[in-house]
């Protein structure tokens, strides 16, 4: 059964993407979550959709989601006003390997909305800075106006032992950052592939090319993790809606080691 939350506030990130902060209506704390887990978020009257939690895992009072408006349910969610009731089930799924990454460098590669499910990893690493090695964030978006979490990206890039690089596919003349697809950022990143864990989220084609690039730079497949955000319904492995080869994305994923899913990812259509 969904738990009732109230929309505390919404902030606009880009043309079509908004961050929603929810708080439980009954005043209790939301269930704690692992970075990379998702909830089934219910927009009353418009349906229930899986959305990754994009907020700080140490925030015991709120649940935060960053949502791109693509259809009826996501449109209803992003256009809701403060105080609106929203139903939430979860958290569900296997998240990012934040524990296994301790003592090692963390390399985050995101495209478009894919930075949202990875933001909790960044918060976790920064809150426990001496437990991790270097943090590298490589982020690609279509245009400068599509870059999510701009101010945070700038503030992360100024931190010690942290590199945050942003690139866009094409820029206007006012853009002074990188231009080129996200894989072109690897040339500017200080990576130690043998002692790093990489976490990738974005459209599948992007993740495939990023995983190939990381391997070409010497990273083992078992240290590369991807989030497969294909669509799902029940979120608990019953309905089969999100079955992908032998895996159910909702309970075996959404985060998978590349070594396990590579054969599926390289196939054209499944």
């Amino acid at each position: 059964m969904p738990v009732a939350y109230a929309l505390h506030h919404v902030s606009q990130e880009t043309d079509d993407t908004f961050t929603l902060v929810l708080e439980p209506k009954d005043g209790r704390s939301p269930e704690s979550f692992q970075p990379g887990q998702f909830s089934m978020v219910w927009a009353f009257g418009a349906g229930e959709v899986p959305i990754s939690i994009s907020g700080d895992p140490s925030d015991a009072a709120h649940l935060t989601y960053t949502i791109r408006s693509v259809g009826p349910a996501t449109r209803a969610l992003v256009s809701a006003e403060a105080g609106t009731s929203v139903g939430v089930r979860g958290p569900f799924g296997r998240g990012w390997p934040v524990d296994a990454a301790r003592e090692r460098d963390v390399v985050i590669v995101a495209g478009g909305i894919g930075l949202a499910p990875l933001r909790p990893v960044i918060y976790r690493v920064l809150a426990n800075r001496n437990e991790y090695g270097r943090l590298t964030i490589l982020y690609g978006a279509r245009r400068p106006a599509d870059v999510l979490f701009r101010e945070e990206l700038v503030s992360w890039s100024l931190l010690p032992e942290t590199q945050a690089l942003v690139t866009v596919d094409s820029g206007d003349l006012g853009w002074t950052g990188h231009v080129g697809v996200v894989t072109t950022l690897f040339r500017h990143a200080k990576l130690f592939p043998h002692d790093s864990v990489a976490m990738i989220c974005g459209p599948e084609v992007m993740m495939r090319f990023v995983a190939q690039e990381l391997q070409a730079r010497g990273m083992a497949q078992s240290n590369i993790f991807l989030s497969m955000e294909r669509n799902m319904k029940c979120a608990v492995g019953f309905c089969g809606h999100c079955q992908w080869g032998p895996h159910f994305i909702c309970k075996d994923g959404p985060v998978f080691p590349y070594s396990r899913i590579r054969p599926l990812l390289d196939r054209y259509e499944l």
């Binding site: 690139t167 820029g171 206007d172 003349l173 950052g177 990188h178 231009v179 080129g180 072109t184």
Partner: peptide, 24 residues
């Protein structure tokens, strides 16, 4: 430093198609 490659097309805003930096 950093260098931007720009393309100008009639009736469209100029765009940067790529940037190049140290080592390139």
């Amino acid at each position: 430093g950093s260098v931007a490659l720009e393309i100008f097309a009639p009736q469209r805003k100029p765009i940067i198609i790529q940037t190049l930096g140290a080592g390139e």
